[in-house]
Design a protein around this nucleic acid. Sequence first.
DNA 1: AATGAATGAGCCTTCATTCAT
DNA 2: AATGAATGAAGGCTCATTCAT
Lengths: 223, 223, 223, 223
Amino acid sequence: MKTSLSTFPQNRRVAAEAVILPIGVTPKGARGKILNAALRLFALRGYGATSVRDICKEAKVQTTTLYSHFPSKELVLAEIIQLGHTEHLRRLREALSQCEHQAPAEQLSALVRAHVISHCEYSMLAVVTNTEMHALSDDTVRPVMAILQESESLLGEVLLRCSQNSIFDVPDIELALRAIGGMGMRVAFWYEPNCGKTPEYVADTFANFAMRLMGITHDPQPG
Amino acid sequence: MKTSLSTFPQNRRVAAEAVILPIGVTPKGARGKILNAALRLFALRGYGATSVRDICKEAKVQTTTLYSHFPSKELVLAEIIQLGHTEHLRRLREALSQCEHQAPAEQLSALVRAHVISHCEYSMLAVVTNTEMHALSDDTVRPVMAILQESESLLGEVLLRCSQNSIFDVPDIELALRAIGGMGMRVAFWYEPNCGKTPEYVADTFANFAMRLMGITHDPQPG
Amino acid sequence: MKTSLSTFPQNRRVAAEAVILPIGVTPKGARGKILNAALRLFALRGYGATSVRDICKEAKVQTTTLYSHFPSKELVLAEIIQLGHTEHLRRLREALSQCEHQAPAEQLSALVRAHVISHCEYSMLAVVTNTEMHALSDDTVRPVMAILQESESLLGEVLLRCSQNSIFDVPDIELALRAIGGMGMRVAFWYEPNCGKTPEYVADTFANFAMRLMGITHDPQPG
Amino acid sequence: MKTSLSTFPQNRRVAAEAVILPIGVTPKGARGKILNAALRLFALRGYGATSVRDICKEAKVQTTTLYSHFPSKELVLAEIIQLGHTEHLRRLREALSQCEHQAPAEQLSALVRAHVISHCEYSMLAVVTNTEMHALSDDTVRPVMAILQESESLLGEVLLRCSQNSIFDVPDIELALRAIGGMGMRVAFWYEPNCGKTPEYVADTFANFAMRLMGITHDPQPG
DNA sequence: AATGAATGAGCCTTCATTCAT
DNA sequence: AATGAATGAAGGCTCATTCAT
């Protein structure tokens, strides 16, 4: 018996249909077409199951044209993942910057909201970013990994400050980080615009979940 | 700057090293060797990036031997995923059966614990099961999907019963399901036996997180 | 526009459906089942496009069983071709033996009739015999070729005797042999029992064609 | 005992050595080299027994080069067969067009001559065209079959007109079509330029055979 | 004879990439 | 930049055949 709560309504990697790259970040011309096509196919089928020919057919360019814009298929993926982590980090920073003098609880809430919203809005990007990083070579992955770790540090530090505040009651801060990070990351796989919930609503709810998970008490003290 | 809270310590899909298939489920002989080799490589590199020759080299059999046990590479994956979902469902059911007359809160706790422990103990299996299902054809995925949905229904129904109990305060039950399911699912990617935490400890903590997330109050009424 | 005279009503090598090996020649048991299955598949698909597995599936025996009866796939074909040429030669000889004291014209008629009837009755055998002999190795083909050449000699000698008789008027005896042999050989490809003509009728008509082709005059002298 | 009349002097599918594709029809460059190599090997060994590697070695190109000119091995065969039937039909039409106002007898003679000459000159093409069509899939064979049937219709209609003319005496027009078509078709298997007979001579003789077979009387009336 | 597993060569085809134009 | 042809490695898979049982 199938309940209305099923989390995997179909056999696709990502529920969302629409694209794709953050506005203002997509390059013009063939380069942009290639990146968007590659992102779409990597998200739906996976990097290993997508050929250069597939990408170029989707982008409506010649196969060799790809090689005048990128040195290899791997570096197409690298650029996409780079874009993904960069945009993600930018949003986290932006969210933090708007409440940097407020209590840790406010900061945590803002971070989780930004985390979730970006996974809703750029779900394909997030799926690729989170599932295909292992396809990059060690040298290629290094700068990308640095950005990812920076994002994690941001959340980790806020969690640390929260845990030092008596309004929270955290049994294991590392596991809390894993749990909060993980629940947000999964949003990219199931969210799609027609699901009946707005990104902001999901974000608010998940921020609430994060607060609860951290054991916040109902009458907070000043941070 | 890397903090001690980083969730992705290296560029691999799955942190765990060890294998692999649930005891008692692994077939004898070449068939079992092939399944374990394939599981390991699919988990580390992905299905698309693993060749039949790779699997057979790892399993120390001839490539043609694989084809006397499986009709295709896809059906090797299918069997692994089937095993994964079946074992997962078996554990959820077992956990539930041991508290079927208890309050929903107890049941939720038991389910989350089973969910997490199985993602710790069979992390490779869980990673493959959760990230490569899209590589199966429609016909092949159908029976597997049915098992997955059965597992989800189990958790969904318990959440539903919890939400109808006044000791819980759930803003959105569907999102709660996504959050709790998602945080457990991600465990497979980062957990490894030498991380300093036992599966039981992680499971207890995540069960606690789930309770909190569901807004449980501190003096529960009988379910 | 398709006329009712079209010679290739469908894309198959041989029009006939039914089998197969001459009665009394088919071995008992697995050996016979294998030969008949192989003949059928070689006729319909060709030797190169038929696998040992295909043959064994059709014959409902194990793959290895074939190898306890035949040393190789090639020698299955060799046996079939051998059977085909042997039966063909037997029939030509039998036909000749019944008119050995009659005029060459009678002998030619009898030979053409036997040639055509055997191509009607064992059309699958004839198709394989005539189109797959090149698949045999030099050593294997030698004894088979000898039988074939014996059959041809039979017809060639009768034609020669006819041409020396003044009731015939043959411009080129070698070409007459090719023409008469060739028109009979093609019968195996298009004849099928439900075509509305009996083998005897076709044989009589082709014998008449052969006579005409040899330029027979209407008041024959004694041979 | 081998007579000088033997029709199968050696174990090959086709007696002729030389090539191959009609002048003016062979494409330039690698495509043409591949077609000629494939034709030669298909004729000598059969389609099923010829690998893509064989073709490419013979054509002195890389195996992948074949795939930038043809979608598959099957479509190499399809193109060859298409060329064969097209050229054959073209020659029949050309022959007919030069005697379209003459008596049916003249037309029959012209058709048989064209039929035979094209089987002498392009014997490899004819052998492949006539023996490997069954290797094509249903969809691929359809347009090719249409051309073949058009050629057959041409001959069938002329035979029909002949049979309605009192100078002919045809016992069974359908069998006459089979016989005349079949004897010409077999020419491709045994004719070779050094056999001591020119294509024209063979063609004239077979045209004579065809007339006799149709029961022509020796003092024809105007058609 | 018959079986089930295994073998090594080879199948057709596609891959990411390069090069001369 | 863009093109069409070409390249060498590797892809998944099937082949005819063998062997221990």
